[in-house]
Design a binder for these strands. Structure first.
Lengths: 231, 231
DNA sequence: TGTACATCAGTGAACGCGCGTTCACTGATGTAC
DNA sequence: TGTACATCAGTGAACGCGCGTTCACTGATGTAC
């Protein structure tokens, strides 16, 4: 992991490759514990133990526990952004109907968020108290919006919205926040809405809200080149 | 406060009016502390102190701290539902254009969530670990959906959606989760989207996604009887 | 090339603090006769 | 109506536990000459 400028505030920069490795093992351990046992089990002692390290070693790498948490979530966000950017590259969707592209991507988001349920949930919890963690989520939304707008432009899609930039930003925000809510609260609660139905409805929402093409009517019956799998 | 059956699992039922009063003072104190100082300051000792009660008294009212929390959030949800139901009564919106009605209600939601920021945020955090708290949010969404569907029906609105029930449910969910996200992360982050713009866009989304009337085009220029203030 | 020294990295027991919960006790309220 | 007793309500010091953080010390790595 490359250490960014932002991190330097919460991290004591490692000087040897040995400490660089411990640094990353600590990050991995923290993420693994959050993922398997939840945020509240990710104590400093447990993280150090899992990383085959020690508590003292932990504190010579991070200024405090919060520093580690920020690093974990920063890395997580960076990975999420990288994955999404790859998924949104225009070549990938060449020849695929916009509706199928949307459906594939939203379904992908749903499954990824679900897999990383604990991390998403933990990020949300910390974001409520730590603005710098909150900013990670914003960065994510912002990046996706930009890329999507670009994708639409490259495809020559015309949006029926007074300010297409705002429109896409809002649409992305709506998708993300609803997926996030579903991830956190679990789908078990309302049997009324399966993952598939939710996905389908989010696509409908995007298409109609943004005025994408004039495919409103035949939304349910579109056939086009098959969408490529993501990842 | 009337004690419901659900609560009996986490509450020791009071026998005298005196203890009933302490019960409510404890609830009020907890809510006030969460509101003013945040969830992490709401310790048993502090709650008891603020309620002019004692720790021991606390534990003769509640089975444990979690019991109190559930009661706080149950009460909060009930109040939210009651307020919303009143706001959604059909008489209130007689003669008001559906778009203005939506805009007024969404703006109202935005301001209420913002006022109760700390409580909303705390409920969300606990919901991640306690399904029974999570269910409160679902109940809220469900009630609003039902009432909105009813309101549409009474007004003779025709929805352009294969399953209007699902459509309204999803639309309400989208509005709530985005407002919630904004409440938790704070609007400070993205200067790009003011409360007003977000509200306007949510209305646009509802109108278009649900195919409400054929007012898509003149959304920005509708004039109708003024919407009544809520509360 | 080898030795001396400085700096970096790692260790884990010990500390301190905060918080949820318990418990022995006092006071208040209701009830039976 | 008054007294005795049982039950309910309230009190706050004390307990125990977990967790973040520190610190005195050992070992590893790099560097100057």
């Amino acid at each position: 992991m490359i250490i960014t400028q932002a991190q330097l505030e919460w991290v004591k920069p490692p000087q040897q490759t040995r400490s660089q490795q411990t640094f990353e093992r600590l990050l991995d351990a923290a993420e693994a514990i959050i993922d398997e046992k939840g945020l509240e089990h990710a104590t400093v002692a447990e993280i150090a133990k899992r990383a085959n390290s020690s508590v003292g070693s932990f504190y010579s790498r991070f200024s405090d526990k919060e520093g580690l948490m920020r690093c974990v979530f920063e890395r997580f966000t960076s990975q999420a952004i990288a994955t999404t950017e790859a998924a949104l590259s225009s070549e990938r969707w060449h020849g695929v109907a916009i509706i199928d592209a949307l459906e594939t991507m939203i379904a992908f988001m749903l499954s990824v968020f679900n897999e990383k349920r604990a991390l998403v949930s933990a990020l949300n919890i910390r974001a409520a108290h730590d603005p710098s963690v909150s900013a990670f989520g914003q960065r994510f939304q912002h990046t996706i919006s930009e890329r999507t707008t670009q994708l639409f432009k490259e495809r020559g899609e015309v949006l029926d919205h007074p300010d297409p930039g705002v429109g896409v930003f809002v649409a992305v925000g709506l998708c993300l926040s609803s997926i996030e809510a579903r991830t956190i609260h679990g789908p078990n609660q309302n049997e009324r809405l399966s993952d598939n139905v939710l996905c389908h409805e989010l696509v409908r929402m995007c298409v109609r809200y943004l005025g994408l093409g004039d495919r409103l009517a035949d939304h349910d019956h579109v056939a086009s080149q098959a969408a490529p799998p993501i990842n």
